[in-house]
Nucleic acid binder design. Structure first.
Lengths: 208, 208
DNA sequence: CGTTTGGTTAACCGTTTGGTTGAACCAGGC
DNA sequence: GCCTGGTTCAACCAAACGGTTAACCAAACG
């Protein structure tokens, strides 16, 4: 499901390869020849299916962003307690990012270059009520009202949760050099991190 | 101090412009002509002073990374209590990143592209004891021993602090679309965020 | 069996890119 | 006045780039 469902095999190959290359090098840095090589096809096929580099990027970006936004909803299960809800969210969200690192890198790259595409797509997703962070915000606001957690600003809190779940993937090369476990067994490190993050955030939110 | 001290005026202009462009577009995406335009000089000057795109990037990256690492030490003042130490660190570190966004974007960009340069420079800085995150790690380890905070893993904790202080700058365009305050008055948002982060993390670390 | 069709390719085209060159410029010393 | 060393620039170059073309091929179709 990293690629639109109605795509042919070749289109899938192109899409996958384009995501990989765009994620690493950005829209400007990416080279059509490299995408073609990564997809194992002739360069002309890229233009046959997607016309131009710009259109290929926009297709990849739009689909990836929709999937990335939807992951908020997919990771959030309404559990009986906020404690359990938070634990499940961190677990699910980190797992999603782990198996979609390129998607995350693409989003970050777009942010670094100014993110002109971000605005419209974000608004579109928000209006569609698709699955923006809004649901997490509401969950936290509800937990505040219920007295399960302190009177925190829900927006800031969501941003903090997302930051901690995402950033160590963004800076993965640095983390792997500095943290021995991360360099040797990344998956084990990710699991360690889930626990650490839940402890830190849940305690950080607990009532006074 | 965003540029080596022994540089001429032209070299400074080039260096500043190169940092800006490399930070936005990465090593591959950046165009020499654009750097020249941004520096207000002829393209030939770039090669006169730095020989090639690669050498220009390496110079900019090496200096920026050293400065970025040093900011850990600069932000960390040994206060009487861990509470105060953490507060001052968050305040200082966030301020540093705010006034060095391009430096941060360059570091992130290098991570996204694999970060082959990161390894050596990180090791070099670590061996020189220059000012790697190690001092923050030790500060937290000491606070654990002193019973000021819970028995947390210092490495994970530092990574969490850095994540929360950095990520909202990385994703600034997204944050500004989603969070009203951030879009209207970024500086006010940053100050809000400092308080939120200190509260969240300090309480998250407090003894049981 | 001829032909149409969707997919595929190598070769090609004009433009942009990183990098070079040689001449001009502009101090300061003689 | 005229060197001289460092600096600046327009013009230039080969390679790499995004994109196009015409020919090719196998399966589908009448």
């Amino acid at each position: 499901m990293t690629v639109p469902a109605d795509y042919s095999d070749t289109e899938r190959d192109i899409f996958d390869a384009a995501l990989r290359v765009f994620a690493r090098d950005g829209q400007r840095g990416a080279r059509m020849q490299e995408i073609a090589d990564a997809a194992g096809i002739n360069k002309a096929m890229l233009h046959y299916y997607f016309r131009s580099k710009e259109q290929l990027y926009e297709k990849v970006f739009a689909f990836t962003m929709r999937r990335f936004m939807a992951s908020f909803g997919a990771s959030l299960e309404k559990a009986p307690t906020f404690e359990e809800t938070l634990r499940v969210f961190i677990d699910g969200y980190v797992d999603f990012v782990r198996s979609n690192e390129d998607a995350m890198r693409l989003m970050v790259n777009e942010n670094l270059t100014g993110g002109s595409l971000l605005g419209e797509h974000l608004r579109e997703a928000t209006e569609a009520g698709d699955a923006p962070p809004a649901i997490l915000v509401e969950t936290i606001a509800a937990a505040v009202e219920a007295g399960e957690i302190r009177r925190v600003d829900p927006d800031h809190t969501v941003l903090s949760v997302v930051s901690t779940c995402l950033f160590f993937f963004v800076a993965r090369p640095t983390v792997q050099v500095m943290h021995p476990t991360a360099g040797e067994d990344w998956d084990a490190f990710v699991e360690e991190r889930k626990e650490h993050l839940f402890d830190l955030i849940y305690r950080g939110l607990s009532p006074e």
